[in-house]
Design a protein around this nucleic acid. Structure first.
Lengths: 305, 305
DNA sequence: AGCAGCCATGCCTTTTCGGCATAATGGAGC
DNA sequence: GCTCCATTATGCCGAAAAGGCATGGCTGCT
């Protein structure tokens, strides 16, 4: 039994006339007759009652016609699904992200993507840097939107930068640095720092180490946090100050004060990470394209529009 | 696209190896390669990644494999369904019946049928004689278990008798006939009779007319009822006596008394009616066979087993 | 009774499917 | 880095199946 048999039977069952059905199918009537006979022979069931005035369906024929209709429809849908998947217009997209650094670029990109490709279900995974890297490597994540990986994190991982942020120092309003316009790195070296946890955010320590090594110093880590929100809390209660990017203001609001960090060339880089040999689906590529577009820093072009 | 392409792709997708899949399918490997290529070409989607160590599924391939699995399973089920239908082991069976006359034969037949052919859904339609005949003619009923049709009812209808019942007279315990062992028809001629309605049970009047015509009399109909249960009620309240078959005792119980009717050759005949040119499905035929078997009057063969 | 419409059958052509031999490929192991 | 081996792809041919044309046969209608 082949789909041809089913398509032919469907045509005959709907036209109730071999000659007309054959014309619709653009084949000769005898060819059609034979194929339908073959189908009936293979089933061992009479589907049609032939008469010189046309054809009627037997009870079995009626049942089978409905089944065939459904089957051919499903087949067509399956083909369309897989084509849509190949076009990036269908499927699931597992995206990992670091919540705080991506707060400015991920939401607009998501919105634009969902509007452009509503058939794709985006599954967001909020994870630490090292978990993101692990997810990419084992294939549970297709893409990760995160801070640029460093050190051991970079093997088998590709990174495409979307945006850089200057580094800031976050502190309470009561902190002495609050009176400064900007904070030189050299002054920070003596201060207790609140940082992210070394276990989950190894690239954060690469950044700290590089920055302090440049001035021949070492950071004094007073506390390690396993998320940005606990880091904010630690700073807020006065356990120390922290290195963050300016967009922390978007998540922490007025709970802390932020001052530009000077005396270092280090910046925070946020972008797209993917496994070097992981296949990115067409939907993933579309998402990247939208990320690139929406994360371009818009210069407001004041005065003229 | 043909089912062959799907079957072949399924084999490759499961074996993840063209050579082995070809062996399972009992075709040569190049033939399989080509068919799968043709499928991919037609879809315009790569389903497989070939390598010298075998084959892996692309994301699209994984999706399509699941779809194909489902599709082929459904196709197989459809074929099985229609074959089961042809064997009389699946489908719906619309059976009309006259409740009172069939009370002895229909329930055991139904039970035996459901046990023998559990895949068939029997749909019972409790109707009057004339409605049964109409249902058979228009095809909404496949079979009717009923009293033998008479007169106009017989055109385009075939009847197969299953059992005959002697006629009885039903009456209240207070009625004068209650003291008789049996009631001669001639005595009944003077009595007011309760009958079924002429509109819905025309064969009932043919029976009455034939019986009384034989003795040169006419029945005196005091009330017409549109169902057996209202007939019982009418007799019970004393509006008259009624011609019934002995199995009324099974539905009316002790509410009435029954006396054999003598002086007539008329009997009540119950059997299977079908439309002369209506197709009876294999399931219907099975039902008839079971009816014939279960409705044979069992002679208890006292004393020996 | 003859005709028209429709389906089936016989025969031939065309397409396509499958088999065999063999080339190309690419990773594993030396 | 090269060879080897397992695996898939390609070329060619034969076989099978599908399709086309002509025609036969049936049945209901005029």
């Amino acid at each position: 039994m082949e789909l041809r048999h089913l398509r032919y039977f469907l045509a005959v069952g709907e036209a109730l006339n071999f000659t007309k059905a054959a014309a619709q199918l653009r084949i000769a009537q005898p060819a059609l007759s034979r194929q339908v006979q073959d189908l009936e022979d293979e089933l061992g069931v009479d589907l049609l009652r032939r008469s010189p005035r046309g054809v009627t369906l037997t009870t079995e024929g009626k049942l089978f016609l409905e089944e065939v209709r459904e089957l051919l429809k499903r087949a067509e849908e399956s083909v369309e699904k897989v084509r849509a998947l190949a076009r990036g217009e269908y499927g699931e997209l597992h995206i990992g992200y670091a919540p705080s650094p991506t707060v400015e670029i991920l939401p607009p990109a998501l919105a634009a993507f969902q509007k452009a490709v509503p058939g794709v279900k985006v599954l967001l995974h909020d994870l630490s840097s090292d978990e993101l890297i692990a997810g990419l490597r084992e294939g549970t994540l297709e893409l990760a939107i995160m801070v640029k990986p460093a050190g051991e994190q970079t093997t088998a991982i590709e990174f495409e930068m979307l945006r850089t942020y200057p580094l800031c120092v976050a502190m309470t309003a009561a902190h002495p640095f609050a009176r400064l316009k900007s904070v030189p790195l050299a002054k920070v070296a003596a201060e207790p720092l609140v940082g992210l946890s070394r276990k989950d955010y190894s690239e954060y320590y690469h950044m700290l180490d590089r920055a302090f090594a440049a001035i021949g110093a070492k950071p004094r880590i007073a506390a390690e946090c396993d998320s940005a929100s606990s880091l904010i809390t630690e700073v807020e209660v006065g356990d120390g100050i922290a290195f963050v990017t300016p967009n922390f203001e978007l998540i922490a609001g007025k709970r802390l004060l932020y001052r530009p960090l000077t005396g270092t060339t280090e910046v925070g880089s946020v972008g797209i990470a993917r496994a070097t040999k992981g296949d990115v689906t067409p939907a993933g590529e579309k998402f990247c394209a939208i990320l690139r577009k929406t994360s371009r820093r818009v210069t407001p072009a004041k005065g003229k529009r």
